[in-house]
Structures are given as structure tokens and as C-alpha cells.
């Protein structure tokens, strides 16, 4: 569980984080999205006790980062966006070193390391020198390292950045496994679709402020004040199109190329949505489906961050 309260970080006059409040429940996979320089890494560094906040605080599993940084470090597995590895150290020894750094006994390490290498598919690389591994392998090894003390909270800063599509998919698979293990995961990305699929909740950060938080659909509704809807008709699409076009709560209506679907933004609440459906049936529109859909996240993201810039 992570609780962030009024977290602020200033570098001189520049405000990297501006009174950030955030609650991330146990076992949640929280996606932190924002442009480069929006404050994601700053937040993560503070949570990892690598950076002192200017004001505000945060709690990781109930431990205050300001008062109990040592306890916090035991709770978290941290993977920075950029990291180096030691020369002339083998993958197995790499994990062994960090295991020792967490005070894990030699015997336990011997049991643990093969399991971790297995989890990140690096068993066959255990005798390879770390600095010679590919970027994707290094990222996976670093993830295995962050798991060595079996932390309940994982803080992963851009774990998939700079990876080719295949390595990205492998990384995603591993993260899914971790999610299934019940870890609380805080993960960041500047690429939204990368996150959407596996996150329970997404927070959009821009210029040090949290612009929106919730599931992807919720964020969209909150930000655009409307939800995306899609209806499919069996026939008479013109009549349906005209019906929806006349509704004042509907905007950005467009017809799909398949000739049977109409997509639009609907502003009303659940009650209004129910009324709309009722009206459709009363009008005897030839509906076969009437549903909310998730729009392209990138559109939402662009809209939010652009909005932030304008204001």
C-alpha cells in the first residue's frame, strides 16, 4: 500500500512535483503516465528514499519515508529508468551481491537465485557477464534483482523503455506474473497503451500534478465529461445516425466504415444513458448493440496533457 500526501519537490524555482496526493491500495497495479519531465521519476525516487521531498510525505506499507527510510527500503523493490551494471560480474553473482546487500543468507540466496532467473527467463545466462547482456536481458535481470528480498511493493520506472517489441512483450508477461503474485506495483511509462492493458488504475501526471486517476474509462469520462459509446444497427443506419445527431447530449458523432456502426461521445449519467436506450427502442431503431467503449488512450493522453499546457 502506498499513500502519498502533499508531496512536493522543488529544484530552485522549478517545481517538479506539486502537492501530489495519491493512494494506491494493496495488490493494485498502478500505472503512472506522463510526458518526460512530468514528475514520474521524481516521485519514484522519493518513494525509493533516494531523494528528499521539499514538503509532504509518503507512506509505504505504513512506514513513513521521512522517518523510517530503512524500513521503506525493505518494503520496496525499485527499478530505476536508467541503471548501470558492474563489469566482470556474472548474472548469478549480480543477484547474489544484491541478495547479500539485503542481508539474505548464503543458503537462501542459493535457493532463490535460480528461481528468480527462471522467472525472468535468464536461466541459461546465469554464467554470462552482466555487462555483455542485451538491454532487454539487463532490464529483466534488474527486475529479478528488485524482487530478491520479496518486496510487497514494486516501483518500476519505465521498465519497458528502449526495448524492442519482443522484449517488451516478455517484460509484460513477467509483470503479469508479478501481478498474479499479489504485489503492489507502481509502474511508469510515457507510452500509455503499454500500460493500459495490465494496470488496474492509471494516474496521469503533468507538470508535477496529478491530472486524473482511475480506470482508463473513468479517466476519459472525467476528463472529457463524456463516455465513448458505440451502437451497431442491422439496417437503416441513416435513420439511426439522424436520431443520435439530434440528441443534445451527443457530440463527435461519426459513422464507421463498416456501414453498421456509429460512435459518439455521450455526456449524460447512467439514468440518461438508460433513457437514451429506451428512446432508441421506442423509435424502433434496428439496434443490435449499444455499448460503452474504451477509446484510444493516446487521444485521451494528448488531450489531457495539452489541456495542461494551455491552462
Amino acid at each position: 500500500m502506498i499513500e502519498i500526501i502533499g508531496l512536493t519537490k522543488q529544484y530552485g524555482k522549478f517545481t517538479a512535483l506539486d502537492h501530489l496526493d495519491l493512494h494506491i491500495g494493496e495488490g493494485t497495479v498502478f500505472g503512472f503516465v506522463g510526458q518526460n519531465g512530468a514528475g514520474k521519476s521524481t516521485t519514484f525516487s522519493i518513494l525509493a528514499t533516494l531523494l528528499a521531498p521539499t514538503s509532504g510525505t509518503a507512506f509505504v506499507n505504513g512506514y513513513n519515508i521521512l522517518k523510517d527510510p530503512k524500513k521503506v527500503r525493505e518494503q520496496i523493490g525499485y527499478m530505476p529508468d536508467f541503471f548501470g551494471v558492474y563489469d566482470q560480474l556474472k548474472a548469478e553473482e549480480y543477484l547474489d551481491f544484491y541478495g547479500a546487500s539485503y542481508g539474505i543468507s548464503v543458503n537462501e540466496r542459493k535457493k532463490l537465485i535460480p528461481q528468480l532467473l527462471e522467472l525472468v527467463n535468464l536461466t541459461d545466462k546465469r554464467d554470462s557477464y552482466v555487462d555483455l547482456l542485451s538491454r532487454g536481458m539487463k532490464q529483466r535481470l534488474c527486475l529479478a534483482r528488485s524482487l530478491i528480498h520479496d518486496p510487497e511493493v514494486l516501483i518500476l520506472d519505465e521498465p519497458a523503455s528502449g526495448l524492442d517489441p519482443r522484449a517488451r512483450i516478455e517484460m509484460r508477461e513477467i509483470l503479469k506474473e508479478l501481478k498474479a503474485m499479489g504485489k503492489t506495483i507502481l509502474i511508469s511509462s510515457h507510452i500509455l497503451p503499454e500500460l493500459a492493458e495490465m494496470c488496474d488504475v492509471i494516474g496521469i501526471i503533468d507538470q508535477g500534478k496529478l491530472k486524473a486517476q482511475g480506470s482508463v474509462a473513468e479517466i476519459q469520462e472525467k476528463l472529457q465529461g463524456a463516455k465513448s459509446m458505440m451502437v451497431k444497427v442491422n439496417r437503416n443506419i441513416e435513420r439511426a445516425f439522424a436520431f443520435f445527431e439530434d440528441n443534445p447530449d451527443i457530440s463527435e458523432i461519426e459513422r464507421h466504415e463498416d456501414g453498421a456502426s456509429i460512435q459518439f461521445l455521450f455526456k449524460g449519467n447512467a439514468e440518461a444513458q438508460q433513457q437514451l436506450l429506451k428512446a432508441c427502442i421506442m423509435q424502433e431503431l434496428d439496434l443490435v448493440s449499444f455499448a460503452e467503449i474504451e477509446t484510444d488512450l493516446e487521444d485521451v493522453f494528448m488531450e489531457i496533457t495539452n489541456g495542461g499546457m494551455e491552462s
Binding site: S45, A48, T49, L50, K70, R73, E74, I76, Y78, P80, F82, F83, G84, V85, Y86, Y98, S101, Y102, G103, C142, R145, H149
Partner: peptide, 14 residues
């Protein structure tokens, strides 16, 4: 400089 310090500092080593 090699960006290994951050990781080392997040371990529970004193």
C-alpha cells in the same frame, strides 16, 4: 557515474 549507486542505496545495506 555508472548509475549503479542508486540501486545500491535502495538496498537495506547500511
Amino acid at each position: 557515474e555508472r548509475q549503479t549507486l542508486n540501486i545500491l542505496l535502495t538496498t537495506s545495506q547500511s
